[in-house]
Design a protein around this nucleic acid. Sequence first.
DNA 1: CGAGCGTTTGACAGACCTCAATATTGGTGG
DNA 2: CCACCAATATTGAGGTCTGTCAAACGCTCG
Lengths: 273, 273
Amino acid sequence: MGDLMGDNAERTSHDQSRFPAARLSRPLCGQCPVRDGSLCRRMERRDRDRLFPFGARIQTRRAGARLFHQGEPFDHILILQSGWALVHKLFEDGERQIVRFVLPGDLIGFEGNEEAGMAYTAEAITDVTVCAIKRSVFYRACAQSPRLAMSFASLVTREALSAWNHVGALGHQTAQGRVANLLLDLHRRVTAHRNPKDSVLHIPLNQVHIADATGLTPVHVCRTLKQLRTEGLLDFRKGALVLLDPERLAEIAQLDPDIAPEGSMTIPPSAVA
Amino acid sequence: MGDLMGDNAERTSHDQSRFPAARLSRPLCGQCPVRDGSLCRRMERRDRDRLFPFGARIQTRRAGARLFHQGEPFDHILILQSGWALVHKLFEDGERQIVRFVLPGDLIGFEGNEEAGMAYTAEAITDVTVCAIKRSVFYRACAQSPRLAMSFASLVTREALSAWNHVGALGHQTAQGRVANLLLDLHRRVTAHRNPKDSVLHIPLNQVHIADATGLTPVHVCRTLKQLRTEGLLDFRKGALVLLDPERLAEIAQLDPDIAPEGSMTIPPSAVA
DNA sequence: CGAGCGTTTGACAGACCTCAATATTGGTGG
DNA sequence: CCACCAATATTGAGGTCTGTCAAACGCTCG
């Protein structure tokens, strides 16, 4: 965690001029939440207003930086403001399993405790800005504000639902289904707070990311993506995702359109706001 | 959901004499939380005292009964008091993926919302007793009591951690590792609140349950269990689980003993109590 | 005794992995 | 602008793990 709480901490709002667009390994268009500040600002204003009195700080981290590491203690909660991150579990053979991707507005840092250390590693995929607050302070704030506590519970509930969906995909589906499930899920999460549903969507992942998340090898992910492309289902190359046949994709991903997806709020807004 | 809220509702405490031991498909010894009331009473007293003013009711359900069904609305929260349950996702081909097993003290019923219906199906494995409360009432109670809200958040956090561990097992591990992981996890959860760590532990699951939870076929689960048995790692037959070599099992399951397991409380008791 | 369920075992097929080589891309420096 | 390098993506051949199908066994219950 080291310099995460260092002197480069910022207390000001997440302004594009003060937080210049990240230098990314590859250019991303304005649709991507990494560079588009609208989503970030909306989540930030609401969370910051609640948490800044408790010592929340805005931080920036470079792509590839580790936000916290499996086995090591980490005493902060992070709210991602912009950019993409991931949470993975390291195995002894050096392989890793990505358990979730973190998008702006998502909370990370509750995957462990002070004594035993974090159970997972969090890593910035792109350059990111996060809102950091001491975990003990955050819990104290929640204990004083049922509204904040329920907002926290709501976020964690969404994480649990997403994880269970992930379990279903990994346990039951073939390679096509797993990849389709992941890309559909990411597409939905990115476009959820976005009006213009353009056909092409930029996702800052490569085939290795998809492999580590779906439990497949990069080689097989490549074959599966090619298969999906030739079958006219979706096109994903160089981070550009196009859903060519969303309906058939949902079938392959075994997503029942009637069922509330991961993004749905289980806790009604009335109980939070 | 039907008769769940029917006239057989009980408001009295969970007494063995009033709630006679369930007629189970196979006999279970006194170690199993299904028949042992100590765990049930402890969880119940604490939760009931908080929730009964809000209309919580104790209910009983038979083994095999569905507590709620995927796609259908369900407006209650259930706290399992005794017995075992499971939560699974149904796929269109008729297969199912068990996403978690529910033990006494666990909460279910937040896997969806009123409008879209539940995202999963919950089913009683053995006869169960549950503490039921209207979801809207429960959320209102949480909104008035930060303590209850944080207790809820703590439970959901544990579920999320457990689900992520499950994701890691399904995505990364071989059949042996998946089965070992599941049985070790269940063993830990059952013995967590139990002093005498006897060598033999009764778990009310069959090979089909294990198959649906690990994403394997019952045939392969059978082969894997036989393999684990001949290698002197564990013995699981007719619901009787014996861990013959816990250390080597933990290796196979890729469980890092230094890392906090799913059972650890992420939210410190001081923030809840 | 027969029916039904769960378990066990075998032969075979398919999905995915491993290893290896090549092609493509993006970045760097001359 | 081109050469060069590292990282990523692609393609092929062969092997392993797990699924599928089928049959038989044991157990419980009616």
